[in-house]
Design a protein around this nucleic acid. Structure first.
Length: 275
DNA sequence: ATAGGCGCCTGCTGGC
DNA sequence: TGCCAGCAGGCGCCTA
């Protein structure tokens, strides 16, 4: 589900609702998330104020006023919303944080439980966690030399490279396909065969599709909702993702779907350059 | 070290 | 109507 545009939308919408609010009380459901939430963390967040809400790759980071970092990953079906305290608790809600004033409740809901909520003691601990994962740079203003070097230095195809969070953080299955279409590059093409121009084209295409999706507040295919619970609109603007058999918006050739890097991959066989 | 495959979960859809 | 296979936006672990 949530890739960078969706997570960015959650962050932008949660920020005005959460910043300055104090967490009064929190509780967890009985089913474990992929990385389990520890009971002791309830006591550590109680009474803390939210100082900031930001994104790193596909991670949502809440900066607490004592330096702790409350970090969420939405996995495939995660929803992180701030809604009124009296709103009903939906099924599959795994964590609830009561906020002071008119803050309502921050709720983490995740049907498939591939997501996680983790508390870090401070920023250094969080950064160490990202570093251990090898989390790559944000896709905006990617350094061209870095980008070309990483493409040249791998034996993998472009689809696999875009999905690798260590090369660039935040791109997932949908926006990998959309970016490759935008750049007119074939998903099976080996990254190392791109010349400087093509590498730059791909770099800019990634930015373009992500920014377009952020403007549309992300894509709600099934589960995704923004920080205020509203669905996104980007699903109506996909050029290739989920459009198998439909005409390519550029040349009319039917869009094809194949399995690549273990993921379903959509592309135009005519106007995306192979080899 | 790197690349590919599998499994984790639940729910929905389409074919029979 | 019921059943079952296949599929889904992510990632981490295992193996070769």
């Amino acid at each position: 589900m949530p890739e960078l545009p969706e997570v960015e939308t959650v962050v932008r919408e949660l920020r005005p609702l959460l910043v300055g609010r104090r967490i009064q009380k929190s509780w967890a459901g009985r089913l474990a998330l992929r990385k389990p939430w520890r009971r002791a963390w309830h006591g550590r967040v109680a009474g803390r104020r939210v100082a900031g809400v930001r994104r790193r790759g596909k991670w949502v980071v809440l900066d607490l006023d004592d330096g702790q970092r409350l970090v969420f990953h939405l996995g495939m079906t995660g929803q992180l919303t701030a809604t009124p305290a009296d709103a009903p608790i939906a099924d599959h809600t795994h964590l609830i944080f009561d906020l002071d004033g008119e803050g309502g409740r921050l709720r983490f809901r995740d049907v498939r439980r591939f997501g996680s909520a983790t508390l870090f003691a401070d920023d250094a601990e969080l950064e160490a966690f990202f570093a251990a994962a090898g989390l790559g740079p944000e896709p905006f203003d990617l350094d061209p030399v870095y980008w070309r070097g990483r493409l040249a230095g791998t034996a993998r195809n472009l689809k696999a490279v875009l999905l690798d969070q260590r090369l660039v953080a935040g791109v997932g299955n949908i926006y990998a396909d959309e970016a490759l279409f935008e750049a007119r590059l074939h998903p099976t093409r080996l990254a190392s065969t791109l010349d400087a121009r093509a590498a730059a084209r791909l770099r800019r295409a990634v930015e373009t599709v992500l920014k377009r999706a952020i403007k549309r507040r992300g894509a709600s295919i099934r589960d995704y909702v923004g920080g205020d619970g509203r669905r996104g609109e980007m699903q109506y603007e996909f050029r290739v993702y989920g459009r198998t058999g439909e005409p390519c918006p550029r040349c009319g050739t039917p869009i094809r779907r194949v399995r690549l890097a273990g993921r379903s991959t959509h592309f135009c066989p005519q106007c995306q350059e192979g080899v």
